[in-house]
Write a protein that binds this DNA or RNA. Structure first.
Length: 450
RNA sequence: GUGGGCGUAGUUCAGCUGGUUAGAGCGCCAGAUUGUGGAUCUGGAGGUCGUGGGUUCGAGCCCCACCUCCCACCCCA
């Protein structure tokens, strides 16, 4: 039989034990913070009906959805002569989820009778995007979401910022939390008389620090804004100072623009809460922050690592009517999503993982032969009963080989039960770091390792 | 989806203007060393040179196509 080439699909990854240990360290940290804030876990299927997913992420998003071919005779009654993007929805009823927020909205509507509002849930699961892979960008990656739904209070936004602060301070990553509000962006579009150009304006403004003011103006012109409208945006670009100062300027600017004024008010309230609560990390009001997902309606968040050049490692925002599409209007939610894979890349680059994550076993019993092995098995059972991670070398290999195995597995102790120990009912414990060894009873061994 | 780069041993890479049998470091296996590892030394195994075609007396090297991975754009975690 011809051998099959070993490979996995583009943009997906295998995880080695050491990588799993590090990933679990990230997941455990995030999960523990979510629990501290009294969020409850849920899971949803990898596959959703395509009708649930389509149209929620903008035109770009639809293209990036992985679609799953129908089972059976998917060709029946389908005209394959037409354009492929017309054929696709006819032959694919399901697709892989693109994020955790939209499936969550579906979940809330479907199980509303079993949920007590305001409801806060967390969810750590993989999502899939048919994007072209790149640094920090994968086709399969994990999101760690926390959302609260059924409450419009800005206290929720505050708690999200506090969670971000706690997660990244525990992981030892320096971050800046950028905050903006979609209502402010809508206000800006209204103010210059181009409410229909909201998306174009936000996309262009978003690039300000990347391509510079002149290029942003050029792009706005390209997107159909008149030169007087572009000039009317100048006060937005020239805003500076503290969050309070920017908000004050916005309030003045939006004297006659209702949405904008509402947005500025929300920002003022949120930043007031943040100042009062006091967070460790840097928090910044960034009017150029837009975020692509088009279901956001209020606050939007993005977190960037200060010491590593990579895209955002956490993002989120408020959505006022995501459940509306599923038949449950006027339920507001707000949430954030931690990008576990990017956080992994950041910690790797910073070399900031705890050193002892690789350690699977605490002690390895050296195997000298059948009689000694039987004693090791007995001793190991007692250690394991005490919750001590224990290995017995499975064959009486050369000592060098067994010791090398302990080294490579980073097992901190090896235990010898040889001829003499067998006779005395003892065990010799060797510390693999300093090389010291002592002979003791099994009870003493449990006391030392336990 | 658009543009650019890479692909040689398990791995990181070398390989001259195309020219005998494609190399090195690390890793792997064995021994020096039959109750003590990390060091050292000695020996050994391991390659359809990404895949398929073409040019040539001759291709790892040149040409074409495809694939992969990486990078940038778009977009995003």
């Amino acid at each position: 039989m011809a051998t099959v080439k070993c490979s996995i699909p583009k943009g997906t990854r295998d995880f080695l034990p050491i990588e799993m240990a590090r990933r679990n360290y990230i997941f455990d940290t995030i999960r523990s913070v979510f629990r501290t804030f009294a969020f409850e876990p849920i899971e949803t299927p990898s596959l959703e009906n395509l009708s649930t997913l389509m149209g929620k992420y903008g035109e770009e998003g639809d293209k990036l959805l992985f679609k799953v071919l129908n089972s059976g005779d998917f060709m029946e009654g389908v005209d394959f002569q037409q354009d492929y993007h017309k054929v696709a929805p006819r032959i694919c009823d399901r697709g892989l989820r693109y994020d955790l927020t939209v499936p969550f909205a579906r979940f809330v509507v479907q199980h509303r009778d079993q949920i007590t509002f305001p409801f806060r849930r967390y969810q750590l699961q993989p999502v899939w995007r048919a994007d072209r892979p790149q640094k920090g960008r994968y086709r399969e990656f994990y999101q760690c979401d926390a959302d609260m739904i059924g409450s419009t209070s800005l206290l929720n936004e505050l708690e999200l910022v506090q969670m971000i602060d706690m997660v990244f301070s525990r992981l030892g990553i320096n971050v800046v939390v950028k905050i903006n509000n979609r209502k402010v962006l809508a206000g800006i579009a209204d103010m210059i008389g181009a409410p229909d150009k909201l998306v174009d304006i936000t996309v262009a403004i978003d690039k300000l620090d990347k391509i510079g003011l002149d290029n942003v103006r050029a792009e706005l012109a390209e997107r159909g804004l008149t030169s007087s409208q572009i000039r009317a945006l100048d006060p937005v670009f020239s805003l500076s100072g503290t969050a309070e100062e920017k908000i004050a300027a916005l309030e003045a600017m939006f004297a006659n623009v209702e949405v904008g004024r509402k947005g500025a008010e929300e920002l003022k309230e949120l930043f007031g809460y943040i100042t009062a609560a006091g967070v460790k990390c840097e928090v910044e009001l960034d009017l150029t922050l837009a975020r692509g997902l088009n279901y956001y309606t209020g606050a939007i968040f993005e977190v960037k690592a200060k010491d590593v050049q990579i895209g955002s490692i956490c993002g989120g925002g408020r959505y006022d009517n995501l459940t509306g599409i599923f038949g449950m209007p006027d339920v507001s939610g707000v949430g954030i999503s931690f990008g576990a894979d990017r956080i992994y890349d950041v910690l790797t680059e910073l070399d900031a993982f705890p050193a002892d994550l690789a350690q699977a076993a605490q002690v390895l019993f050296i195997n000298f032969g059948p009689a000694e092995q039987a004693a090791c098995v007995k001793a190991a059972a007692r250690l394991r009963a005490e919750g001590i991670a224990t290995l017995v070398y499975p064959e009486a290999a050369k000592m060098k080989k067994q010791m090398e195995y302990a080294n490579r597995k980073q097992v901190p102790f090896v235990a010898f039960i040889g001829e003499t120990e067998l006779k005395d009912g003892t065990v010799t414990l060797k510390n693999m770091i300093d090389g010291n060894q002592t002979t003791m009873t099994i009870d003493e061994l449990i006391a030392v390792l336990g």
